[in-house]
Write a protein that binds this DNA or RNA. Structure first.
Length: 392
DNA sequence: TCTAATT
């Protein structure tokens, strides 16, 4: 797997300072769906959620949005709103789409919203994309709850847990205070996702008042069978720390050559990321000109400039669809688009398709890994799309 | 002792 160059610039995506307009609507009252945690095995970031049967109060709002509006969690850090829209757009027509970002740094907060036109597509997206592995993440797709102040700041940080306590036991302990949206027990880094508990975790309740009651009831209390009391408090907001760290890096960087204000540096980072997004090349790290890179590799920059590296996938089955391409290529890095070429009359796949990836190194690893891959009873041929008009 | 869940 390719290692992504990581610096401040790569953390700041272009366009971050200009939030997209969001055509917000009154969001519907609904019964929140809690039972759609990742369907795959647990990974480092796929906390499962155990639903309980507490009823939630119904708030006012339109019924339609409750069935079309999805929240998507555990998105890879480098995934853009365009990539999110592209991925979910492969299911059906999207009414609106938003990746939530830090207001100051523009960094992705790792979640977003997708509102479909058709409720059936929203349901299909949950069924087909929930649990999808993208890079190191396992995304979670679920219906968005109606936005309201009462559901904010309902996340608790719990420490001092017995090392033997399971996630299920943690939920059982807290569920008496309300509806749990997510729970997680942090584990030791080296022992991996199924490794030993660090004795700390998180509980997100549906509503803040439930979290408050849980603090009152459980802070400084010993769980059944435990020898030490646990600490229960409101969790820090993860985005706060990130923006502060980033801003302090920008101001204190010892090798900064641009003594101007923050905004001036930000401009440069934005330019770098624009190039990175467009060509998979970091201008400061690559001695090659963009034209040189593309002609050298014999690669066609497909469609509109700035969409990435186009990959040709051959020997797909007649019933192949876009989701298989997402599933195959997504783990290798940022995928912006997939397309299965179909016969106009039969609507069956003509045996090939295309995948666009943002970063050259990730595309190269994907090709190296997937060329010759056996999919069902077929052996795939995977390569960069050649520029046929220049071919001999 | 702190993960990216409400636009």
């Amino acid at each position: 797997m390719a290692v992504r160059l990581c610096d401040v610039a790569s953390l700041l995506r272009s366009g971050s300072w200009a939030p997209e307009p969001w055509t917000g609507q009154v969001i519907a009252a609904m019964e929140t769906q809690l039972s759609n945690g990742p369907t795959c095995n647990n990974t480092s970031n796929g906390p499962s959620t155990i639903s309980n049967n507490c009823s939630s109060p119904v708030e006012s709002g339109s019924i339609e949005d409750s069935k079309t509006n999805l929240i998507v969690n555990y998105l890879p850090q480098n995934m853009t709103q365009e990539e999110l829209k592209s991925l979910f757009g492969s299911i059906g027509e999207i009414e609106s789409c938003k990746l939530v970002r830090d207001k100051i740094t523009g960094q992705s907060l790792g979640y977003g919203f997708v509102n479909y036109v058709d409720p059936k597509d929203a349901e299909k997206a949950i069924n087909t994309l929930n649990g999808l592995r993208l890079q190191t993440k396992t995304i979670k797709v679920s219906y968005a709850r109606p936005s309201s102040a009462s559901i904010r700041d309902a996340n608790l940080y719990v420490s001092g847990l017995p090392k033997t306590m399971t996630q299920k036991e943690l939920e059982q302990l807290f569920s008496q205070y309300g509806r749990i949206i997510t729970s997680r027990i942090l584990v030791d880094q080296v022992t991996g996702p199924a490794g030993v508990s660090r004795g700390v975790g998180f509980i997100r309740f549906d509503r803040r008042v439930e979290a408050e009651e849980a603090i009152k009831g459980l802070n400084c209390q010993k769980p059944p069978g435990a020898t030490e009391p646990i600490t229960v408090k409101f969790a820090n907001n993860p985005s706060q720390k990130t923006s502060q760290a980033l801003l302090s890096q920008l101001y204190q960087s010892p090798n900064r050559r641009y003594p101007g204000p923050l905004a001036q540096q930000a401009q440069r980072f934005r330019l770098d990321n624009l190039l990175n997004m467009a060509y998979g090349v970091k201008s400061r790290f690559s001695p090659m000109a963009i034209d040189g890179v593309t002609s050298l590799a014999g690669i066609n920059i497909p469609g509109h400039a700035g969409t990435g590296w186009c990959i040709f996938v051959y020997n797909l089955a007649p019933d192949a669809d876009e989701s298989i391409l997402w599933q195959m290529f997504g783990p290798f890095g940022a995928v912006t688009n997939v397309k299965v070429i179909r016969d106009f009359n039969t609507n069956k796949c003509k045996g090939f398709g295309f995948v666009t990836m943002t970063n050259y190194d990730e595309a190269a690893v994907a090709i190296a890994s997937l060329n010759g891959y056996r999919l069902g009873d077929r052996v795939l041929q995977v390569s960069f799309k050649t520029n046929k008009t220049h071919k001999a």
